[in-house]
Design a binder for these strands. Structure first.
Length: 311
DNA sequence: TGCCCCCTGCAG
DNA sequence: CTGCAGGGGGCA
């Protein structure tokens, strides 16, 4: 489900909610979702929460829980004293309502983490739960021995030294300093004959960009998504770089994109799609020029663009 | 580079 | 009923 902005949104909420708590229990309801031994994480304290590409890490010092939510994964945090209220999904104006978290656990709950708070045992965080829901079961959480991790100096998770076989081949983080348009160009040129929109989704070119934000990046750059990488001028590489960063930053600013499943750990949907120019808007007028947005398939994924604005 | 697959559910 | 959905691994 989530691309970089959605995982980033989840990360920011979890950093506020679970750092300092201790994992008291792990209930695995879908064996293929939880890869590792629960006893390797039970009793351990959450030291931090980080994101790399579309993956989320919960740092337990001696171990790390590494999540990939794929298409339909959700992480929902429920404080101990909260009775489940929120509705199931109802749609208004084509978008899910503000809160779409129903009772937890639900039939899509695959793993349940229970926390204790040794310092404040009577707080609402003690006995709270983190639910990993995943309708399609593409997602997973792996227990990683932290000895496999590099040194994270300055609190920054090193890019390729972390968990090499899982993370090592990922391309650069687009929102980190140092990700220049020249680097994007050089990485994209691995795929000279590929459409730019498809190449942007290759996680070894740049990490975290998926179908929504690659469509928006092409619109922001006013480039036809079918353009072959090898045909771009330097000026266009620069536009694409700027367009991708703008899409990702706007995504984070609006709390991510909710097409059908995404909610943050508090059950709030994201609003980026209200501001999207092309994604999901086929047959709608372009917000810039009123030309009808067209939908095609590229690399097997829905691709939306304005034939007038994007050349 | 382009399928097919993993799986489930919803819209058309 | 068929096709499609924020991902991505494996196979020709």
């Amino acid at each position: 489900m989530p691309e970089l902005p959605e995982v980033e949104t989840i990360k920011l909420v979890l950093q506020r909610k679970i750092v300092g708590l201790t994992i008291k229990n792990v209930e695995v309801r879908s064996a293929k979702t939880f890869l590792g031994k629960t006893e390797d994480v039970i009793g351990k304290k959450v030291a931090g929460v980080w994101r790399r590409a579309k993956m989320l890490g919960i740092d337990l010092n001696s171990a790390t829980l590494l999540f990939h939510l794929k298409m339909t994964g959700q992480l929902i945090y429920i404080p101990n004293d909260k009775r489940l209220t929120i509705n199931d999904k109802r749609f208004i104006g084509g978008h899910p309502t503000e809160d779409m978290v129903g009772p937890m656990p639900n039939p899509h709950t695959r793993v349940i983490f229970t926390f204790s708070d040794p310092l404040r045992p009577r707080s609402e965080a003690s006995g709270s739960h983190l639910y990993f829901n995943d309708q399609r079961r593409f997602g997973w959480v792996k227990v990683i021995d932290s000895r496999l991790r590099g040194n994270d100096k300055k609190g920054v998770i090193p890019v390729s030294s972390v968990i090499p076989n899982l993370i090592g081949n990922l391309g650069p983080e687009p929102l980190e300093k140092g990700f220049t348009w020249q680097i994007l160009k050089s990485n994209l040129l691995k795929h000279k004959s590929m459409p730019i929109k498809v190449a942007l989704m290759d996680q070894t070119v740049v990490s975290g960009v998926g179908n929504i934000y690659s469509n928006e990046a092409c619109f922001n750059a006013r480039l036809d998504p079918r353009t072959k990488v090898g045909n771009l001028t330097d000026r266009q590489f620069e536009s694409l770089h700027r367009g991708a960063l703008k899409a990702l930053r706007d995504g984070i600013k609006h709390g991510g994109s909710t097409r059908a499943h995404f909610v943050d750990p508090e059950g709030h949907r994201g609003y980026f799609l209200d501001y999207a120019f092309v994604y999901g808007l086929d047959k709608h007028p372009c917000k810039v020029c009123k030309t009808e947005i067209k939908k095609i398939s590229l690399g097997g994924r829905g691709t939306y663009f304005c034939q007038h604005c994007q050349k």
